[in-house]
Design a protein around this nucleic acid. Structure first.
Lengths: 248, 248
DNA sequence: CCAAAAGTGTTATGGCTACACCCATGT
DNA sequence: ACATGGGTGTAGCCATAACACTTTTGG
């Protein structure tokens, strides 16, 4: 009886037959999608890519000789040009209807490319999604060239996106809110050195609520995660704030 | 310039060529592995499957017309015979060296099956892992038949397992510890109706620490998640405890 | 000097901890 | 009666909240 179960599950013959059924794959395709989050003008932004009339998340595939995590970092680097970026796993999106069919048809028409209807690309995809926290200022320093295809969007004003990518971005936004209260990784959205008022404003933006300035500062300092640097010179009235840097 | 990037990423021709390279797949295989957790004899147990000399987690594949979540539930049902089981996503395991080669060779030898060296089964796998909380008593009511192939193992006394499955189980254990303090889902390890002392003992077991009995009871009741039922009749000295049931 | 900005201090409050106490039941 | 086990109450403690106060700087 035991062997019945074992054989049912691991019977190599059965599954080998099962894997292809008239060029249809048994195992779903696997892709990676990234929610690249930036912070500018006191708003959270998300980097999107435009295809046809809709937008989508930057993404890619896992290659043979790299781990999933490495693939995510590689894709992020190719998109944003940054290394050692803060990247965190978000969720698996694996509904049975996740496929790029309409997306690719639109794209093929636009680019005058022949699209094979049986291509694995039009088949169902399972997406591993990550969110990245990047310094908006350090990305695309020679911006302008990509304007037609890339764009930063306010989280509260997202364009229409392909497939379930709107849902993914929203999931990332909610996850970020819960994460920063435990992980204190939001500083990755700022420059390497930043001031407490800047960090305070960032937290207020992400949480969408007022935070007591006094308590916030004390809490952040008590974590011991930040190293105090010399004061910042600025030309506005008021005290000069200290700068801080995240310890490693 | 913008289009260069777009074409690089979505160039259908390039990727279509890339996907197969002498029967080697470009995209990694995708599998699901389950850490099925039970509670018995005041210990946390994990359901494992034996192949050759080592053990492994129950698992399976995502079929064409089902979501990843549905696949996990289906696999769980086929293993444990339970429906509507508590199941939670754990993590993605996606190192570049995750393959069943030695596992399958051992299996093929044991079962006298010819193993095609180029089979996709021996290729690299990305695993989506879930953990399930089940009622130990309700699983395999006709136990004994499966003894050769299945086994419950104490979390602190795991056997040698194939691939990185030891790591997966350990990750699940740690995740469970952090989860139950926020989600209060541990009651899924008990019968449908349970007493507070039972729940208390369960929490102490999972957290591996003493918990104040008084505070625990008040905290659990204050969540409003549990409905009080009539008292339990038992034949031991002391007060009869109330029974509780998780509200939906 | 004044207003704005940044840093620090003070008191009240709510939840958690530890323990004490009370109640029910089998032997 | 009493040992055992289950349920509830209470005083101390600590983290958080709300706000007040002080210091620094540009105009």
């Amino acid at each position: 009886m035991a062997h019945c179960h074992v054989l049912f599950y691991f019977c190599i013959m059965d599954i080998s037959e099962f894997v292809k059924n008239g060029d249809q794959y048994f195992l779903p395709n696997l892709s990676i999608d990234l929610v690249i989050i930036g912070y500018s003008d006191a708003k959270l932004k998300c980097l999107l890519l435009k295809i046809g009339k809709k937008w989508l998340l930057p993404g890619g595939y896992v290659q043979r000789n790299e781990s999933v995590e490495d693939a995510a970092q590689r894709i992020l680097k190719s998109r944003a040009g940054l290394e050692d970026t803060f990247l965190k796993f978000l969720a698996v999106f694996g509904s049975e209807d996740r496929q790029f069919k309409s997306f690719l048809e639109q794209f093929a028409i636009n680019e005058h490319i022949h699209l094979d209807q049986k291509s694995w690309l039009t088949d169902r995809f399972v997406s591993l999604t990550y969110y990245a926290l990047v310094n908006y200022e350090e990305i695309f320093p020679t911006t302008g060239d990509f304007d037609e295809a890339f764009g930063w969007f306010d989280f509260k004003n997202l364009p229409e996106m392909w497939m379930d990518h709107n849902t993914i971005v929203n999931t990332a936004r909610i996850q970020l809110i819960t994460d920063i209260q435990h992980e204190y990784h939001a500083h990755n959205l700022l420059s390497e050195s930043f001031t407490m008022p800047e960090l305070h404003k960032l937290y207020e933006t992400i949480l969408g609520d007022r935070i007591d300035r006094s308590r916030f500062q004390k809490k952040m300092l008590s974590t011991g995660l930040y190293k105090r640097l010399p004061k910042l010179n600025k030309n506005t009235p008021g005290r000069k704030p200290y700068q801080y840097r995240a310890k490693k």
